[in-house]
Structure formats: C-alpha cells, structure tokens
Nucleic acid binder design. Structure first.
Length: 604
RNA sequence: GGCGAGGUAGCUCAAUGGCAGAGCGGGGGAAUCAUAAUCCCUAGGUUGUGGGUUCGACUCCCACCCUCGCCA
C-alpha cells in the first residue's frame, strides 16, 4: 500500500530576500524530511510558493514606484535561485498569483459561505479621497490619542507602544501623498471562528500527545483563555484575489486567508503540470494521508488554528464545488505542525534593515551547500531559540563534518582505490566485521525513527555517531597494517568499511545530499540517488509564472541496506568537504552590520 | 497584564519519578590509511533560585528570577 505524505512549507513573502533564519525554520527541515520520505518510497509531495499578495508588497511597490507584480517577480526569482543552489527539492514551488490558486481560494471561500461559516459586517475605515481607495492601517499616520505622539501609525503607536483604534486617530494623513483621508463605511466578510472553535479544539486535543509542546500548548492556551473571535477575510485592495461574488469583485481575499490555501492549490497545480490531473486527491481526500506543515513559530496560529478551521469549515463541500462530484469527501486535516523556534545570530536577533543577517544567496557565494545544511541542522531551533556563531560554524565544519564523516569516507576510499581500484572481494568475515555491519545496518531504524518524528537534529547526531563507530573499527582492524601480512583479510576489512560507508551515504543523504551524491559516484554507481530540480515557465490566464519542479525520474536511492556490488570499479576519490580556515570567522563577523541596539550579544 | 515555550558541563544539546549523559572544546597517550584527519584514557555539573510532595525529583506541585514568542 502506498503511503502519502504532504510536506507543506511556509510561503515566503515576496518582498524580501531569504535569510538563514527562514531556511533553518522551515525550508531546510521540510527538504530533509521530504528527501527521507522519498527514500522510504512514500508518495511525497513538498509544496510551497511565493506569497505574492498583501499590503507589504503593495507598500514596497508604492515606495519604488513600480507595480506589485514587479516586486513579487523579483523576489520570486531569487527564491528559485536559492532553493536550487541549496538543494531544496520542492515538488512544486509556485506562487499565489496563479489562475489555479485564484480558483481554489475562491472555491474555499464559496464552500465556507455555503456551509454558513461566513458573515458580513459593516465598519468604518480610512479612505483616500485623492487616490479614491481605502487605505490599509499602516498607510495612515497621525497623532496618538493616548500619548499625543504626532507620528503614530493608525493601528499602533511607536512611542507609547499601544495598539490603537484606527478610527480614533487625531489629524490623520495618508503616508502616500500626505492628503487627509476620511472615514467611510465599508463592508467585509468574516470567518465565523466561534462556530468552529469546538471542532478546532478537538482537532488540537487529538494531536496534543505527539505535537511539539510549544505548538499545541500555545494554540490550546489561546482558545482556553480568549476563545476564537471572528476574523475578517476580505480587504479593500486591488492587488490580490477578487471575491467570487456578484457586487464584491472589487474586494480581495485577505492574504492570511488565501496564502495557506496554497498548500491545497499547489498540490492541484503539481498534478496538472505533471500530467496526472487527479493525483492531488490522494493527499487531500485520503484520510490515511499525512500532511505536515513546516513553519516558523510566528506562523503557528495560522497553521494550528486558522487553516484547520478553514479546512473543517469547507469540509466535503470543497470537492463538490471543485470537481462537481457529490457527495464530496472532507479535506485532510494537518497531521503535524513541527514549527521551529527562531535562529539568532551571534547572540542577537536577525535584523534585515541593519544587515544583522545571513542572506541565503550570500552564504552560498562563499560556502558549499552541505556544510551550511550540516551546521543549520546541528543548530536547528527545534525546541528553543538557538544561535548561529561564526566560530562555531567553522569548528563544526572542521572538527565534525570534515573530521568524522568526510575523513572517514576519504581514508577508506583512498586506501582501497590505491590498492584495489574496485570494491574488494571479501573473504570470511570476522566477528568484528559482522558487528560493525550490524551496527550501521541498525542505523536505518535508529536514524529513521528520529526522522519519522521530525527530530532532525537527533537523526543527524545518530548518523554521525555511526560514522565514528566505523572510525573506531578501522583503528582496531588497521587494514594499512594488515595488508602487509594478509592481503585477502585487508580486502575483507575494506569491503566491510566500504559497505558501511555506502550505507552511511544513504543515512546522511537527506541532510547532505550533494556530498552523498558525490560519494555515490565515487563508489562506482552511475545512476543518482535523487532526482533533478527543474525551472519551468507556466502560462495561465494571469500571464506567466516560473515554478520549481522536482523530477524524480532518475532517482535510485532507497532507505535500506542494499549490498555493495563486489568488483564495482571505484572513481578516484576527492575529499567530500573542504576544511575551512577558522580565522575567517573574524572576517565574517566584520561583514555583519551593527547589532540591534537592544542586544548585548554573547560574552566572549 | 494574559497564554505558552525554554533555563542541564566551557559550547551545542540528551535524559517524562530510579546511579545526570553524548558530541565538540580542555589535559594525557597511541597510531600513520586519511584534508594533522583518527583512536584510547581523562578532567569538568549544588540541573536558574527558594520551598513542597515522594523511599527517591532535571522530571510532579507552589512561588520567584531570566530569555523568547503569541495575544491584549
């Protein structure tokens, strides 16, 4: 029976470049997990895309005097570039600005409306007479009615820190042209969350035993203490997804509401692009399918509460509306939301505006992807906030990655290549040889168990522990000594070590795909472990968008201890990883901007 | 202010009531296949603080301190 796994990955907002905190929080864990699931032979779908709509993008577009679409395209392109170079194997990385996503989002809206989980409400909002449009709260500033600060945003005062009622702002003015806006009545759709609260609560309680405590307790705490309140799902903007209702076409869906729907629409788009139009239903209507959401902790309420509420509220109605089939089946609810905490840098929070940050593309200019993936996994903030320290990065690269794993592969391959040139024929195994193979073989269970539970850091540690065991084995068996006494026995030892390395290659592959692939070739295999990443242009009614696809056609990697073919010719070995000069740490630290003012950093 | 997570060795982290552990770093030694990588031995902790429950507490309860997030 095929098992279905969907890895939904946080949708990066297309108004900024991606930094290491975004990568370690969501994108990298999703890739490690998905690569593992594919090796396990499960039908795996890792999907995400650029979040193209919403106010931050229109603000930026206004600042630069370009269209929101131009902003979104610029950053979207940089995302595709980064993901390919870092080896993040999205089955589909698309965008929310596609005809498909529009249709799916509008269908969810319609399903919720027909199921009576939406209502409308009239309210007053600031309206720009000069521009003839409603202004988002952050476009309006004026005098704070609490402290008298004259440059307060309409929804929040930066001096007294209070959240404000926008309609009470004194002397309001538009940040766009300085004109005086006026309050006008508008009407919006709301998601009736109180009606869905009991179901959402039951959903969370059922998953509490295995979810990360900080994810489920925070969500349940919120419901217990405050309960869920109705939340607006439409806005007066012209950049976004129009409401699919007569008389409402000039309003768009609120970005919080439609972006999460991308997990569903991306699965559908993937099905279309790969020529299997109904395949997505295996992940979305099959109650056995497991859907995981890889996000940062700032996104927890949207994935643990709002998105489940949208799915529950749409229920079977979605299938009926979207496919015309009745009765429909309910949409699959999240199986797990393994949200990560935050990554800090040298003891201080990331700050893009101060350049206190590690930009993904910038890191890749100077470092290979696997060392970055290794370090990011080693410090992955699975249970609490963690820190990137440059000296720690060099230390872990040199003393752990190069020393334990890279050196192990290189010492065995170099010696065998020099004396045999191929995988040696083993003679009778000694008890020690058998014991080593058994130890590494068990790694498929022990490392796999960690990966199943999305304990990625622990899985990597376990794989490293096994690599160290092979080093120990080599010290005791000392094939470099043995070859002078008994060449056949030396061959047995090296066969054993090569077999162990061949398996370790697979255990490391989800984490370090580039070096595992290189090692795979050195060991004489000709077909790759993983598939390829492809960029493709897709045309639709909204124009064209570029997507990143994963083509698994050539992938041969499997999460099981397969036999290493005796006599397989070896390639000339090259070191898997480069040793780095630790003195560069100071250079990297100097490259950073000023730390945020409220941060003292690490005492060293 | 409310809700939640976290605070364990120099560093990064394990350990859900049963002798507080691993890796790295520090100290000593062995080996020479390997990118001076590796292997063995070793030092190092009043588990944030103060109480409580228990035969027994890192673990459960109460209060407080610190860090972070969400909400107001």
């Amino acid at each position: 029976m095929t098992e279905y796994v969907l890895a939904g990955v946080a949708w990066p907002y297309a108004n900024a470049y991606i930094h290491a905190g975004n990568v370690v929080g969501a994108y990298l864990p999703a890739d490690i997990f998905s690569r593992y699931q594919r090796l396990r032979g499960r039908a795996t779908l890792m999907v995400s895309g650029s979040d193209a709509h919403g106010t931050p993008i229109t603000v930026r577009a206004d600042q630069e005097g370009v269209s929101p679409e131009a902003i979104y395209r610029r950053y979207h392109r940089s995302f595709l570039d980064l993901f390919q170079r870092l080896g993040l194997t999205y089955d589909l990385f698309t965008s929310t600005h596609t005809a498909n996503h529009f249709k799916v989002s509008q269908t969810i809206f319609e399903a919720l409306r027909l199921n009576d989980y939406l209502f409308t409400k009239r309210e007053k909002q600031w309206y720009s007479v000069t521009q003839q449009r409603f202004l988002p709260d952050r476009y309006v500033e004026g005098t704070c009615y609490i402290c008298g600060y004259e440059a307060a945003r309409s929804d929040q005062c930066d001096r007294c820190g209070n959240l404000l009622d926008p309609t009470r702002l004194i002397n309001p003015r538009s940040k766009l042209d300085g004109s005086t806006p006026e309050l006008r009545e508008t009407e919006h759709f709301y998601l009736d969350l109180p009606k869905l609260e009991a179901d959402v609560r039951a959903f969370l309680e059922a998953r509490a035993p295995y979810w990360r405590p900080h994810v489920v307790q925070q969500s349940l705490g919120l419901i217990r203490t405050e309960g869920l309140k109705p939340r607006p799902i439409s806005r007066d903007l012209d950049w976004g997804i129009p409401l699919p209702l007569k008389g409402w076409e000039h309003k768009v869906l609120y970005v919080w509401f439609e972006a999460v729907i991308g997990y569903l629409s991306a699965a559908i788009e993937w099905s279309t692009l790969t020529g299997q139009p109904n395949a997505w239903e295996q992940w979305w209507f099959n109650p056995e399918a497991r859907t995981y959401y890889f996000i940062g902790k700032d996104n927890i309420p949207f994935h643990a509460i709002m998105w489940p509420a949208q799915l529950i509220g749409s229920g079977a109605r979605f299938e009926e509306l979207f496919t015309g089939r009745a009765p429909g089946r309910p949409l699959v609810l999240p199986y797990d939301v393994p949200a990560n905490q935050f990554l800090n840098l040298e003891g201080c929070k990331f700050s893009g505006s101060r350049n206190w940050a590690l930009w993904g593309l910038d890191l890749l200019e100077r470092y290979d992807p696997d060392p970055l993936r290794y370090y990011l996994t080693a410090i992955m903030p699975e249970t609490r906030d963690t820190d990137w320290y440059w000296d720690d990065f060099f230390r872990r690269n040199n003393d752990e990655l190069v020393a334990t794993w890279g050196n192990l592969a290189h010492r065995v391959l170099s010696f065998t290549y020099k004396h045999w040139g191929q995988v040696p024929e083993p003679g009778p195994f000694a008890a020690e040889d058998e014991a080593l193979l058994e130890t590494v073989r068990a790694g498929f269970h022990t490392v796999g168990e960690h990966l199943e539970k999305v304990h990625l850091r622990a899985g990597l540690q376990e794989a490293m522990r096994l690599a160290a065991r092979v080093n120990q084995y080599l010290e005791r068996r000392a094939p470099w000594k043995r070859i002078k006494e008994d060449r056949a026995d030396a061959g047995t030892i090296l066969f054993t070590a090569l077999q162990a390395i061949d398996w370790l290659k697979v255990l490391f592959a989800p984490y370090l795909p580039f070096s595992s692939e290189a090692l795979h070739r050195t060991l004489g295999y000709t077909r790759p472990l993983f598939g390829r990443q492809v960029v493709q242009e897709v045309r639709d009614a909204l124009g064209a968008h570029e997507v990143l696809l994963y083509d698994p056609a050539d992938a041969t990697g499997r999460w099981e201890p397969q036999p290493l073919p005796v006599g397989q010719p070896l390639q000339k070995p090259k070191p898997l990883f480069r040793k780095l000069d630790p003195a560069l740490a100071a250079e990297e630290q100097a490259r950073l901007g000023e730390p945020p003012a409220d941060c003292v950093g690490r005492e060293r």
